[in-house]
Amino acid sequence: MNIFRILGDVSHLLAMIILLVKIWRSKSCAGISGKSQVLFAIVFTSRYLDLFTNFFSIYNTVMKFVFLMCAYITVYLIYGKFRKTFDNENDSFRLEFLLIPVTGLSFLENQSFTPLEILWTFSIYLESVAILPQLFMISKTGEAETITTHYLFFLGLYHALYLANWIWRYQTENYYDQIAVVSGVVQTIFYCDFFYLYVTKVLKGKKLSLP
């Protein structure tokens, strides 16, 4: 495991914890797209089915378990405990526009045509677009709470670090996984616009609001 990979995982975990703490402390999930969070829960569920079939390391098993728990707790807080604060009106991204192409593509373009492998591929493709309902919500309302932008920043940073991890692995192990790399690049591109706003506005102490 290289430094980019471990920092990527830490960023990912930090992003999820920031979101949970934000919701828990403010007792509100205002500004958070429940749809994106449901998609992430589906992503982890379909990807980590190998918890039952493969053992890699204690680290791998524990992290997968923690990621799954974070995702499910977040969904529960949004649609359960704090559902009165959930902004259903502005969370209006049509999920079928993501789920249908992603499902189709995972059947067409995968490493091997087996149930677990198709589900893994589905999870990789879905993860690359899962944040779109959240970004759509921000563009619709025209603003985001600063803490929400920190969440998005660490989520984007995770992807950027994973790209560095793949370059590193390609150089040192001659290893690469085309499906993961292409999806990772696509996903990181979605964050570029946000990164720009984050650096030019949020880091200078301003709230993220769109003109």
Partner: peptide
């Protein structure tokens, strides 16, 4: 290129 046998990343 190493043949991929399993997904060891998160």
């Amino acid at each position: 290129i190493v043949a991929k046998t399993a997904h060891d990343e998160l």
